[in-house]
Design a protein around this nucleic acid. Structure first.
Length: 564
RNA sequence: CGGGGUAUGGCGCAGUCUGGUAGCGCACCUGCUUUGGGAGCAGGGAGUCGGGGGUUCGAAUCCCUCUACCCCGACCA
């Protein structure tokens, strides 16, 4: 390709509304353009990258034995009503009607459609196991699309669905998908980690997420420094602290804390460390409100809280008004002492002695409070998010916490959809058996953003070679003036192209600085500069994207090097 | 959905408080000169100030209203 024919839409200045590196660079390098919130056009250079990611995914899926098909993105409401998700899914599901008034949705995922296919086409255990996949556009009406292609409303996903006679067969395919995903992300040149995950709205049993490690990631993942334990923080268990609780040393007293509400403010005001202040959160329960008590420096894990008996799912924090009406006190002065609500106490909070907490009277706190003396000994539960340094739940090592971008997620679904939709096959004895399912997703378009998050510098993108839009850029200097430059550049272009190298020739006749800046911004891994200065000595210059200076090679050396 | 913010040539912004009929940088077009790290000079095109309503002799500027977008929190590939 030539830049004159395959135009580069680069931007000299940063777009105002792009916050993170990948979003900024994708706009500046001319990979994408925004059409509306969460909707992006893939420009030619961006599409090349997207296609490369797809190609790797497709190759590895095929290698794993999965079979590609393509389902419609528009789906009839009936299927979703059958699975029960028409009601469950919420406003993220984009719903609409056709001209006949029939209800449809734009597919955010395809369990219903594939299960419908399976119940029609799969008749016998002899057809199992089978794993169908597609690479296709999804739409999820995200509350808050952001970070460009990382959380777009319309995005490209690879989704796969496997069907089995039993859970052993599912476990086998699940493991194969796990290994396949690891191969895919390795081949894409990404630093990633597989972690145990929550099954969320999709439902099912075992589940792993694959995260590309990046500080800008929206997820926190916890892993042990001494074992292979790794889990999404929302799932990681916080073990009860070791050792007994210290003995009380202070009497309980009540102090005035006028206008002091937040835990930090209370700790600061009373001169007590945050870890010795307990905070009381109030959530909605099935009948009454429910109180959750945590150490001041810990944060509530909403998934864990929502699993507690009597707590409403999904978790909803009670409103300020609601609390005042029920308890006669504002949220800033709540505490477990004499609290007239069901109370759950976090393990760590149950091990604090001489603590401070709200007095359930506006503007007052208790200090020197002790469990078992000033209030009943609590039965503690796991309520909080783990923090760095917590013991690993598998008992080996301590947890470290890093941020990740979720690019893949695999689930052992079980029979959630096949049962609701009546998808069965006959087994050896002619009995109808409900299909057991697995599903496996990869955020193909998100990978492009994630790769940039991990691979960029102050000059622009630094593509991992397997997904670079082009491998080699030829940068001729004085293209319009020097016949020798043109001839050499053309020869390199021709011979490299014939050798199957993806090469872009910059024939825009630009000043060198502009050309170099563009080629670095778009992140081409290898650049060959052709200029009179070097040609006089019979050489051209090679510079890798990460190199700080060029080395001189003859044209033949260049050709040898890239022809392999 | 709650909180905060923005909306002015293609992009990035100033002008808004203190109404007087729109400006800067980049990009773009033409010409000349230049050509190894985002060139210089000269000339030029392009906006009616997010939409609607109002106040006023006069509105980008004041008031009302709607919309879009961005950022921070709960969901997900």
């Amino acid at each position: 390709m030539r830049t004159s024919q395959f135009p580069l839409f680069t931007l000299k200045e940063d777009p105002a509304d792009a916050e993170i590196a990948s979003h900024r660079l994708m706009l500046r390098a001319g990979l994408i353009r925004k059409l509306a919130s969460g909707l992006y056009t893939w420009l030619p250079w961006g599409l090349r990258v997207l296609h490369k990611v797809e190609a790797v995914v497709r190759e590895e899926m095929n290698r794993s034995g999965a079979v590609e098909l393509l389902m419609p993105s528009v789906q009839p409401a009936e299927l979703w009503q059958e699975s029960g998700r028409w009601e469950q899914y919420g406003p993220e599901l984009l719903r609409f009607h056709d001209r006949h008034g029939r209800a449809f949705c734009y597919g955010p995922t395809h369990e219903e459609v594939i299960t419908d296919l399976a119940r029609h086409e799969l008749r016998s255990y002899k057809q199992l196991p089978v794993n169908f996949y597609q690479i296709q556009t999804k739409f999820r009406d995200e509350v808050r699309p952001r970070f460009g292609v990382m959380r777009a409303r319309e995005f490209v996903m690879k989704d796969a669905y496997s069907f089995h006679l039993d859970t052993d067969s599912l476990a086998e395919t699940y493991q194969r998908m796990y290994d396949t995903y690891a191969r895919i992300f390795t081949r894409l040149g990404l630093d990633f980690r597989a972690v145990q995950a929550d099954t969320g709205a999709i439902g099912g049993h075992a589940s792993h997420e694959f995260h590309v490690l990046a500080d800008s990631g929206e997820d926190a993942i916890a892993f042990s420094d001494q074992s292979d334990y790794a889990a999404n923080v929302e799932l990681a268990e916080a073990l009860p602290p070791e050792g007994p609780r210290p003995a009380p040393t202070q009497p309980m007293e009540t102090v005035d804390t006028p206008g002091v509400h937040t835990i930090e403010a209370v700790a600061d005001f009373l001169g007590i460390p945050v870890e010795r202040c307990l905070k009381t959160l109030v959530v909605r329960g099935e009948s009454d409100l429910v109180a959750l008590v945590l150490r001041g420096d810990h944060s509530l894990n909403e998934l864990k809280a929502a699993r507690l008996p009597g707590v409403r799912r999904p978790l909803e924090l009670a409103g300020e008004e609601e609390i005042r009406q029920r308890l006669g006190v504002g949220v800033g002065s709540l505490g477990p002492v004499g609290l007239d609500l069901p109370v759950y106490v976090d393990h760590a909070a149950g091990r604090v002695a001489d603590f401070c907490c709200g007095a359930n009277v506006d503007g007052q706190h208790h200090v020197g409070v002790n469990w078992g003396r000033d209030l009943p000994e609590p039965e503690t539960v796991d309520l909080r998010n783990v923090v760095e340094g917590d013991p690993s739940p598998d008992g080996r090592g301590r947890l470290k916490i890093v941020r990740g971008i979720e690019v893949g997620h695999i689930f052992q679904l079980g029979t959630k959809y096949s049962e609701a939709m009546g998808a069965t096959v006959l087994d050896e004895r002619g009995r109808a058996v409900t299909l057991t399912m697995g599903c496996y997703g990869i955020g193909v378009s998100r990978i492009v953003g994630a790769a940039i998050e991990q691979h960029h510098d102050e000059r622009g993108i630094v593509w991992p070679e397997p997904i670079a839009p082009f491998q080699v850029a030829i940068a001729p200097i004085q293209w319009g003036k020097s016949e020798r430059v043109r001839e050499t550049a053309e020869r390199l272009y021709r011979e490299l192209s014939e050798a199957g190298v993806e090469v872009i020739l910059d024939d825009r006749d630009l000043r060198p600085g502009v050309m170099f800046a563009d080629l670095e911004l778009v992140g081409i891994p290898h650049r060959i500069t052709v200029g009179e200065r070097a040609l006089k000595r019979g050489v051209v210059e090679y510079q890798g994207r990460r190199d700080t200076r060029a080395t001189e090679w003859t044209v033949d050396e260049v050709l040898d090097r890239f022809r392999r």
